Simulated assay, not measured.
Amino acid sequence: MTASRTQTLAPDAAGLARAAELLRAGELVAFPTETVYGLGGDARNDRAVAAIFEAKGRPRFNPLIVHVADTDAARALAVFDGDAERLAQAFWPGPLSLVLRLRPEAGLSDLVTAGQPTVALRMPAHPVARDLLRVFGGPLAGPSANPAGRVSPTTAAHVLAGLDGRIAAVVDGGACEVGVESTIVATGGGPARLLRPGGLPAEALEAALGAPLRLAAADPDRPEAPGQLTSHYAPGVALRLEAHAARPGELLLGFGPEAQDAAINLSPGGDLVEAAAGLFAALREIDARAAAEGVTSVAVSPIPDHGLGRAINDRLRRAAAPRPDAASSL
Rank of each mutant, 00 (worst) to 15 (best):
M1S: 15
R5E: 12
Q7M: 12
A10F: 00
D12M: 10
A13Q: 10
G15V: 10
G15L: 12
A20I: 05
E21D: 14
R24C: 14
G26T: 03
E27K: 14
E27L: 11
E27G: 15
V29K: 04
F31R: 02
P32N: 08
P32H: 09
P32F: 10
V36D: 06
G38V: 00
G38H: 00
G40V: 10
D42L: 04
A43W: 04
A43K: 06
D46M: 03
A48E: 01
A48M: 02
A50F: 05
E54M: 09
E54R: 10
K56H: 08
N62H: 09
N62G: 08
V66W: 05
A73L: 13
A74L: 08
D81Y: 12
D81N: 08
R86N: 11
A90Q: 04
F91Y: 06
G94I: 07
P95M: 00
S97D: 02
S97V: 04
R101H: 10
R103I: 01
A106Y: 01
L108C: 09
D110M: 05
P117H: 07
P117C: 09
L121H: 12
P124M: 04
V128Y: 08
V128K: 06
A129Y: 00
R130M: 07
R134S: 07
F136W: 00
G137C: 01
G142E: 02
G149L: 00
G149R: 07
T155Q: 01
T155N: 02
V159P: 02
A161H: 11
D164V: 00
V170S: 11
V171Q: 03
V171E: 00
D172L: 12
A175Y: 08
E177W: 04
E177T: 14
V178N: 10
G179A: 08
T183K: 08
I184L: 15
T187D: 11
G190P: 02
R193Y: 12
L195F: 10
P201K: 10
A202L: 06
A204F: 11
A204Q: 15
L205V: 13
E206L: 09
A211N: 05
A211H: 00
P212K: 09
P212A: 13
R214P: 10
L215G: 08
A216M: 11
P220K: 13
D221W: 13
R222Q: 15
E224N: 13
P226S: 13
L229Q: 15
S231N: 09
H232Y: 15
H232R: 13
Y233Q: 08
G236S: 15
A238G: 13
L239F: 08
R240Q: 08
A243T: 04
H244D: 14
H244T: 15
P248Q: 04
G249Q: 06
E250R: 07
E250V: 05
E250P: 04
F255L: 03
E258G: 03
D261G: 05
L266C: 01
G270Y: 03
E274Y: 06
A281M: 05
A281G: 14
A282T: 09
A282I: 11
R284E: 14
E285A: 15
D287H: 07
A290M: 09
A290K: 14
A290G: 10
A291P: 07
G294K: 01
S297W: 13
S297E: 15
V298C: 01
I303Y: 02
H306A: 07
H306R: 06
H306I: 09
N313R: 14
D314A: 03
R315L: 00
A321V: 00
P324A: 12
D325Q: 00
S328N: 09
